[in-house]
């Protein structure tokens, strides 16, 4: 199954790798012993509830904050020693701010372009059109959505090798959001750019990501290829007209359950072949199964530590 030739030959250095990083703000723990690697040439979705530590992790990737302990490496370099060779290949789109509000869009683009020899004017022009941005307007006069568009342009026009985006599309309308998603895919196709994007808009995330990292209360609760998540999580509807179903399902792969002795709806996580059929026949029941989308998976992912047996 996994013996598939990969189009992007794996580079030796991961764009980002963390070993046992913890980040504390005072006595508040934002990240707790996080170890992970962002695989190159992928679009990684970073998901989790408010306060899960997503922004902290993204800020550590880009070197904006340093971990309290553990090691974080971006392009193989410890993040407290990032310098021009790394920073010039990094694109950062912050949730808010990060722009100089008195400048016009035009001025700001020129200002940022002056730092990057690789700034792509053609790409910039095209994106101004596609994202419907008026370059003559001052940043301070822009709506939240238009400011997010400026953030996207500032993050991608130097054609980075690693693009880190924190909730980049929350205020964009559906049309522009679709174009922004296309933009991320295009960066991957054209430049092999690795993309790490946090978002609560899971319907968007699942259109483009091929890897999912889920944080909960500062800890990594999922770090997996999206395909594998989709093939593990499912809903099973068990039905038994004779009323032979048990009152509870203690099996660890059953993550949530509701129903009675005649019908039950289970949300499960298992990779076993034909698990549903075997499970149902043990109770003399019929089963209908269907996969879960990311939005349906999300509560199961973020609850799994509390349910862990």
């Amino acid at each position: 199954m996994n013996a598939v030739t990969d189009i992007s030959a794996a580079p030796t250095v991961a764009p980002f790798a963390a070993r046992g990083i913890t980040k504390r703000y005072g006595n508040q723990v934002a990240l707790q012993d996080v170890t992970l690697e962002i695989p190159a040439g992928r679009i990684v979705g970073l998901i989790g509830r408010n306060g899960a530590g997503k922004t902290t992790l993204l800020n550590i990737v880009s070197g904006i904050v340093l971990p309290s302990s553990g090691t974080a490496r971006t392009f193989g370099v410890p993040t407290d020693r990032l310098d021009t060779p790394q920073l010039s290949r990094l694109g950062v789109v912050q949730q808010e701010g990060g722009t100089i509000s008195w400048m016009t869009v035009r001025q700001h683009l020129d200002f940022n372009a002056s730092f990057y020899p690789t700034w792509d004017r053609k790409l910039e022009q095209r994106l101004l059109g596609e994202l419907e941005l008026d370059q003559k307007r001052k940043i301070i006069q822009l709506s939240t959505g238009d400011r997010q568009k400026v953030g996207l342009l500032l993050g991608v026009c130097h054609r980075p090798a690693l693009l880190v985006l924190d909730e980049p599309m929350s205020a964009l309308d559906p049309i522009v959001r679709a174009r922004a998603l296309d933009l991320l895919l295009e960066r991957l196709r054209d430049d092999g750019c690795t993309v790490l994007v946090s978002s609560h808009i899971l319907n968007d995330v699942e259109k483009i990501v091929d890897w999912v990292i889920c944080l909960d209360k500062g800890e990594v609760v999922a770090d997996s290829a999206f395909d594998e998540l989709q093939e593990s999580y499912a809903e099973w509807i068990l039905s038994s007209p004779a009323g032979t179903l048990p009152t509870a399902y203690p099996e660890p792969f059953v993550l949530s359950q509701q129903g009675d002795s005649r019908q039950a709806r289970l949300r499960v996580c298992t990779n076993e072949y034909n698990a549903a059929e075997k499970f149902a026949s043990a109770f003399g029941a019929q089963v209908q199964k269907r996969p879960l989308n990311l939005e349906e998976m999300f509560p199961l992912l973020t609850n799994c530590r509390r349910d862990a047996r």
Partner: peptide
Amino acid sequence: LALNPMTISK
């Protein structure tokens, strides 16, 4: 298809 190239190659 506006899909990740990784998905197509898989």
